[in-house]
Amino acid sequence: MAYTKQTWKQYDDNKTEEQNIQDGAVVTAERMNRIEEGLENHSTDKTNPHGVTKNQVGLDKVDNVQQAPKSDFDTHVANKNNPHSVTKSQVGLGNVDNVQQAPLTDFTTHKNDKTNPHSVTKAQTGLGSVDNYSTATQSEAELGTSSIRFMTPLRVFQAIAKWTSGKFMELTGNQTVAGTKNFKDGLQLAGKVVQAGIVERAITDSDRSDTTYVTGVNGVLTRVGNVVTLAFNFQCNTWPSGTETRWVIKIPTGYQRSGSTPVLHPLTLLRNAAQPTDARAYLDGIIVNVKSGNGSSYVSGTWITQDDWPS
């Protein structure tokens, strides 16, 4: 029952007590009980007797809808069966196929597999033309008969060393060289030319230095290695009176004496007729000088040459 407001009036002394009670100017038990009853009814009134709004209690943004029970909420939270029907596109995985993923252990095992699990071929790695050969051992390299082995720089060196051992002259160390060796362009020992072999050259009139008094020349130059031997005869029909020596012949290239000490290299002189007591012959540079007399004279001698081998 809703409370009805009572109207109170001023007590009128000109009226009787009963009249003032009737007028509502006297506090009576009835009126007090009515107030108590009104307060009781108001305090138990759950129908928002003051007309309070959600705005007044700070809930203006809360919709007036039914709330789920806590038990329903807990059940919903525990539901792992996609209760909201979320799609893969909604979580940014629209391009991912719905296939089973490999466990990390499987992936790790595959990664560590060194047995070519994908069966990759040499052609696929750009090595299609490379033969599947192993590297030669030292003995295989030195034997040199296999055609299915690869050679490293070390194996090549070992093979060459084995093949050339005893077949070529070495720069150092002692060796015995067998067989005949033809050194076409010469041989040197400690920087000096070593000549070998033998060659002869005739001495003719064209070798004369004096073509006026020396009327004929014949003989031979012989070279063995770098040793030269001279033997020739010349004629002089008129030996000029008072002449000490004459330039008889010139020694050709390939036979000329090496060095200049002594300046004059003595030669042997023989004559058919009696020789003067001061008869002599010697080599002065490349000229054979003779003091003799009329008739035939014979000159011979030996010296060392460093000339190139005569052609």
Score class of each variant (00 low, 15 high):
residue 94 G to W: 04
residue 93 L to M: 08
residue 308 D to E: 10
residue 301 G to M: 00
residue 208 R to V: 03
residue 155 R to S: 12
residue 191 G to V: 02
residue 140 E to C: 03
residue 186 G to D: 05
residue 262 P to W: 03
residue 26 V to K: 03
residue 104 L to A: 12
residue 18 E to S: 14
residue 265 H to S: 03
residue 99 V to A: 10
residue 296 S to W: 13
residue 50 H to N: 11
residue 85 S to H: 13
residue 290 V to K: 00
residue 254 G to Y: 00
residue 257 R to C: 05
residue 244 E to D: 13
residue 4 T to W: 07
residue 160 I to C: 11
residue 266 P to S: 06
residue 207 D to E: 06
residue 126 G to A: 03
residue 24 G to Y: 05
residue 205 D to P: 05
residue 217 V to F: 00
residue 38 G to C: 03
residue 214 V to F: 01
residue 213 Y to L: 04
residue 300 S to D: 01
residue 149 R to L: 06
residue 244 E to Q: 09
residue 171 L to M: 13
residue 80 K to Q: 15
residue 284 D to T: 03
residue 219 G to W: 00
residue 161 A to K: 15
residue 275 Q to P: 03
residue 122 K to W: 02
residue 156 V to N: 11
residue 135 T to M: 11
residue 283 L to R: 00
residue 202 A to M: 05
residue 197 G to E: 02
residue 2 A to N: 13
residue 235 Q to K: 13
residue 172 T to W: 15
residue 203 I to L: 11
residue 14 N to S: 09
residue 263 V to S: 11
residue 153 P to F: 06
residue 14 N to Q: 12
residue 24 G to M: 05
residue 162 K to E: 10
residue 291 K to R: 15
residue 56 Q to L: 04
residue 91 V to A: 02
residue 22 Q to G: 09
residue 274 A to I: 14
residue 234 F to W: 04
residue 125 T to H: 04
residue 242 G to R: 06
residue 180 T to P: 06
residue 64 N to T: 09
residue 258 S to W: 10
residue 50 H to K: 14
residue 78 A to W: 05
residue 60 D to W: 14
residue 232 F to Y: 12
residue 147 S to A: 12
residue 33 N to H: 15
residue 28 T to Q: 08
residue 222 T to M: 01
residue 8 W to E: 06
residue 228 V to F: 01
residue 244 E to A: 14
residue 150 F to K: 10
residue 10 Q to R: 11
residue 251 I to W: 00
residue 276 P to I: 10
residue 165 S to L: 06
residue 138 Q to K: 15
residue 11 Y to W: 15
residue 85 S to V: 03
residue 68 A to S: 14
residue 283 L to D: 00
residue 229 T to V: 04
residue 87 T to A: 02
residue 254 G to I: 01
residue 138 Q to N: 10
residue 228 V to D: 01
residue 125 T to D: 05
residue 48 N to G: 13
residue 110 H to R: 12
residue 219 G to C: 01
residue 157 F to I: 07
residue 192 K to Y: 07
residue 106 D to A: 08
residue 220 V to N: 02
residue 160 I to S: 13
residue 108 T to R: 14
